[in-house]
């Protein structure tokens, strides 16, 4: 649920990066953190296991700039991808304004992508959030690896509602900002429609 504060002239939105374990959700946030001026972002907070896997969530506060005199602030969250952290994923999704699904392009991870996508839809249903109306972007990550599924084939399986698709190599920053831009656009245009 976005927060509009006319006195402070700011709008704060919540974006969640969703997807299977080790798909590159945290890598997206790390790249954004490292390539944004410290004036435009807060700390990247990560709640990890000892093995450096996301345990609960990562969060990165980001100041995108101003529109019509309003400061646009996004809070970027990741969920833990591992299957058994389902309850944590549900908690993080609460009040979400937009979702980026980070799919792993490797052949052996296609089942995990499908399972995670079903998990996302089920968790949204439990909050009575409409997936059809949710600002949503699909990112096909790890496009630099040798054993990947062709993008067109991935789209046939994973595209659910004609959402924007971005091919990415998050570890090198390819497609990361483009993904953020796409989801920002969808979130702000949806709010524009609702606030009319």
């Amino acid at each position: 649920m976005a927060l509009l504060n006319p006195r402070q002239k700011e709008l704060i939105c919540k974006i969640v990066y969703y997807g299977p374990g080790l798909g590159g959700k945290t890598t997206n946030l790390k790249y954004i953190f490292e390539h944004t001026s410290p004036m435009s972002r807060g700390e990247l907070v990560t709640l990890n296991t000892q093995g450096d896997r996301t345990l609960y969530f990562d969060v990165l506060p980001l100041n995108l700039g101003t529109i019509k005199g309003y400061k646009i602030r996004f809070q970027l969250y990741t969920v833990p991808g591992q299957v058994f952290y389902s309850e944590s994923r549900k908690i993080i999704l609460r009040g979400v304004d937009g979702v980026v699904f980070v799919a792993d392009s490797q052949q052996e991870r296609m089942d995990a992508n499908i399972e995670s996508l079903e998990d996302l839809q089920e968790n949204l249903r439990q909050y009575d959030y409409s997936f059809a109306n949710l600002p949503y972007v699909l990112q096909l990550n790890k496009r630099d690896l040798p054993n990947i599924v062709p993008a067109e084939e991935m789209k046939k399986i994973l595209v659910l509602k004609g959402e924007p698709v971005v091919e990415a190599v998050a570890i090198r920053g390819i497609g990361v900002m483009e993904t953020l831009k796409e989801v920002s656009k969808l979130v702000l245009l949806k709010l524009k429609k609702e606030m009319k």
């Binding site: 709008l11 995108l64 529109i67 019509k68 309003y70 900002m177 953020l180 245009l189 709010l191 524009k192």
Partner: peptide
């Protein structure tokens, strides 16, 4: 109404959003 005037985002365009990036 948005409390202190009309909706601030009524006439935002895709270009405004592009400019953020």
């Amino acid at each position: 109404k948005m409390g202190e005037g009309e909706s601030p985002f009524e006439d935002i365009s895709e270009e405004d959003i592009e400019n953020l990036f």
